Structures are given as C-alpha cells and as structure tokens.
Simulated assay, not measured.
Amino acid sequence: MSDEKTSSDGRETPGRRRVRPEPTATQRALTLLTRREHSRKELARKLSARGVDAAEAEAAIERLAGEGWQDDARFAESLVRSRVSNGYGPMRIRAELATHGLDREAIAAALDTFEGDWSELARDQVLRRYGGSVAEDRTLQRKAADFLIRRGFDAACVRSASRLDFDD
C-alpha cells in the first residue's frame, strides 16, 4: 500500500497531513483561559514561555480583557474560593494573590468575597487533622498551631483553633 493519494483530477499527491498555521497570541491566550482563570501577569508569563513576543502578548491580553475573557477580579475570586476549599487562611491567600500582580484593593475585594468565618475554618482544619483530642494535649496544640500558621491563619484564629476554645 502506498502513501500516494489520488486527487480529484486524477494526479497522485503525497499523503501528507496539512500543516496547521502557527496559532496567534490571542488564540494561545484564549486556549489557556478556556481551561481556567488566569491573572494578566500569569497569562503574560505563559505566553512568553511559549515564544510569544511581549508586546504581542500584552496586546492579546488587552484585547481578551476588553472582551471579558480575562478579568483579574474574577481570577482573584476564583483563587480565593479554591484556596478556602483547600483549607488555607487569609494571609496565605493574600500573599499568593500578590504574586499574581494584583494590587491591595483587588486583593481586599477578593478576600471580602469569602462569606465564612476564618476562625471556624481554622477550627475545622484542626479537627480534621488532629481530632478532638487537641484540647488536652499541649504537644498537639503546638503542632496544630504550627500547622495553622503554615496554612496562613492569623494569631487570633490560631490561638482559638489550636486550643479549641468553643466558648469564645
């Protein structure tokens, strides 16, 4: 069997696939955005890693932001929801949002979308990880406090949750 194919006019042509044109910066950015939300900074970094010129990437991001495909506020809210569901505290989330190039106002607005109680979230994390025996064991209290600090909870949440002061 041969790799040759017959065209409509009867000539044989090589059986090669059509070569697709190189995707534009906008197409590449849109492909990334259809998978999940991205910040402007993250999108620019990923486009640059894929060989897109910085000016071309910025123009593509600007266009997609204008059309509503890319929105830093929506990205920040999505990241807050994701991190809260994974048990992270506000300090850790704030630091991660800052690495994405968001300003203080955008970060504060995104954290304000969390309607729960940070102390309750911290207590839930301690109960999941260490069970109810933390209240009696000082070593477990220290471990729980260290765990919550690494997770990004503030001192008041850590103090309350690591001692499991349900009377507070």
Score class of each variant (00 low, 15 high):
residue 1 M to S: 15
residue 2 S to T: 14
residue 3 D to Q: 12
residue 5 K to H: 14
residue 6 T to A: 08
residue 7 S to T: 14
residue 7 S to N: 15
residue 7 S to M: 05
residue 11 R to V: 01
residue 11 R to N: 13
residue 14 P to R: 13
residue 14 P to F: 08
residue 16 R to S: 12
residue 17 R to W: 07
residue 17 R to V: 10
residue 20 R to W: 09
residue 21 P to T: 13
residue 23 P to T: 13
residue 26 T to L: 05
residue 27 Q to T: 10
residue 27 Q to S: 15
residue 31 T to D: 12
residue 31 T to W: 07
residue 32 L to R: 06
residue 33 L to H: 04
residue 38 H to Q: 10
residue 42 E to Y: 03
residue 43 L to S: 07
residue 46 K to Y: 04
residue 47 L to N: 06
residue 48 S to C: 00
residue 49 A to N: 11
residue 55 A to C: 03
residue 56 E to P: 03
residue 59 A to W: 02
residue 60 A to Y: 01
residue 61 I to C: 09
residue 62 E to V: 06
residue 63 R to I: 04
residue 63 R to S: 11
residue 65 A to H: 07
residue 65 A to Y: 00
residue 67 E to M: 10
residue 72 D to L: 07
residue 74 R to E: 13
residue 76 A to Q: 03
residue 76 A to T: 02
residue 76 A to R: 02
residue 80 V to T: 03
residue 80 V to P: 01
residue 81 R to I: 04
residue 83 R to T: 01
residue 89 G to D: 02
residue 89 G to N: 01
residue 92 R to F: 15
residue 93 I to C: 01
residue 93 I to Q: 01
residue 93 I to E: 00
residue 93 I to T: 12
residue 95 A to T: 11
residue 95 A to W: 03
residue 95 A to C: 03
residue 98 A to D: 11
residue 99 T to V: 08
residue 103 D to Y: 09
residue 105 E to T: 11
residue 109 A to V: 01
residue 112 D to V: 02
residue 114 F to C: 04
residue 118 W to E: 05
residue 118 W to G: 01
residue 118 W to L: 02
residue 120 E to H: 14
residue 121 L to Y: 06
residue 121 L to H: 05
residue 122 A to Q: 08
residue 123 R to P: 00
residue 125 Q to A: 13
residue 126 V to Q: 09
residue 126 V to R: 06
residue 129 R to T: 15
residue 129 R to L: 11
residue 130 Y to L: 05
residue 135 A to Y: 08
residue 136 E to K: 09
residue 139 T to E: 15
residue 140 L to I: 10
residue 141 Q to S: 15
residue 142 R to D: 14
residue 144 A to S: 15
residue 144 A to P: 06
residue 144 A to V: 04
residue 144 A to H: 06
residue 145 A to Y: 05
residue 149 I to M: 02
residue 150 R to D: 14
residue 152 G to P: 03
residue 153 F to C: 00
residue 156 A to G: 08
residue 159 R to C: 00
residue 159 R to N: 03
residue 160 S to K: 10
residue 160 S to F: 07
residue 162 S to A: 15
residue 164 L to C: 04
residue 165 D to Y: 13
residue 166 F to H: 07
residue 166 F to N: 06
residue 167 D to N: 06
residue 168 D to T: 13
